[in-house]
């Protein structure tokens, strides 16, 4: 089946919506998304929920350990744990 230039499936729209939350959707993808957004209730609802999540994540200023820091913590902790068990 020939793929439409402007019409995209709901799954595609949701993926574009996700990518645009991270600034990774192209202009053309956004255009196709907006076209679907106009008539698809599910796309609109997901988009609303997704934007809300992005806003909350930004506002929270949440921090977490970087992968390397977590590995270091793991190593130090495991060494301490082994040491405790030997005593």
């Amino acid at each position: 089946m020939k793929k439409s230039i402007l019409f995209i499936s709901c799954d595609e729209a949701l993926e574009i919506c996700d990518r645009s939350q991270y600034g990774e959707a192209s202009f053309w993808e956004k255009l196709k998304f907006n076209f679907r957004f106009c008539w698809c209730k599910m796309t609109r609802s997901y988009s609303k929920q997704n934007k809300k999540l992005t806003k909350v994540m930004k506002e929270s200023n949440i921090e977490c350990l970087k992968e390397k820091e977590r590995q270091d913590l793991h190593q130090n902790f495991d060494a301490f744990l082994r040491n405790q068990e030997q005593q």
């Binding site: 949440i62 921090e63 977490c64 977590r70 913590l73 793991h74 902790f77 744990l81």
Partner: peptide
Amino acid sequence: PTKWVALYSDYLFNYTI
């Protein structure tokens, strides 16, 4: 304790920072 780092390190870190 073997699961502490995996389960709680982020939560504790965010709490602390």
